[in-house]
Design a protein around this nucleic acid. Structure first.
Lengths: 98, 98
DNA sequence: ACGATAGGCAAGTATCGACTTGCCTATCAA
DNA sequence: TTGATAGGCAAGTCGATACTTGCCTATCGT
């Protein structure tokens, strides 16, 4: 479960996709594609982005809703909120023992 | 930079190593090895763990100090604190812009 | 000095993961 | 209905990466 989230975040392109969905939620595959190409200059195929979105969805970071021939992608940030606290459990008292 | 952190966290064994260092800071390679084998039942070689530690160190998540023939590994959690806020920047006001 | 302990280096394997290519389905507009 | 738009499926390629094996160096105890 958390494994899927970390694996999803491991790829820089997927992190960019999350950035773009943070900027504007509910985009379609083609919109995300366009943004990645124009704003970030990466040249990848539509299929590549589609597969990235599938990984993000499997990780619970993105949910999709279909309307007619459009499929909109929405960001879900809940899985991100607790994955890191696991090692940050010591609130601010970083116990350095010199 | 953040790329190294996410890549480091992508592997479940490395996350376990962080867990063990959270439990007890300043362990040696052999100690970490022993914990992974006995507590988590994974059978991997010393080299494997050593390479994982190298990845964690390259990501800035672990620092090492040498004393005689021992090399102690210390956890650094700072890189973890800000990597996720990037998508959590909207505090609780999920701003859907209509 | 010698053996044992703690760790490092380097090459090889083998699996996984990102990406492509080619074709297929579904919805909408004319 | 036809063509254009939005997306899906399935295999195949290729580089990254997790792991092993074998040998080498350094420090400590006796």
């Amino acid at each position: 479960m958390t494994d899927d989230v970390f694996k999803a975040l491991a790829d820089p392109t997927r992190r960019l996709i999350l950035d773009e969905l943070t900027d504007r939620n509910g985009q379609t595959l083609f919109e995300i594609c366009g943004r990645l190409v124009t704003k970030h200059g990466l040249g990848l195929s539509r299929q590549a982005v589609s597969q990235h979105l599938a990984v993000l969805e499997a990780a619970g970071l993105v949910s999709t809703r279909r309307e007619g021939r459009y499929k909109f992608h929405d960001l879900h940030t809940e899985p991100l909120e607790h994955i890191v606290t696991r090692w940050l459990a010591q609130p601010d008292q970083e116990g350095r023992t010199p």
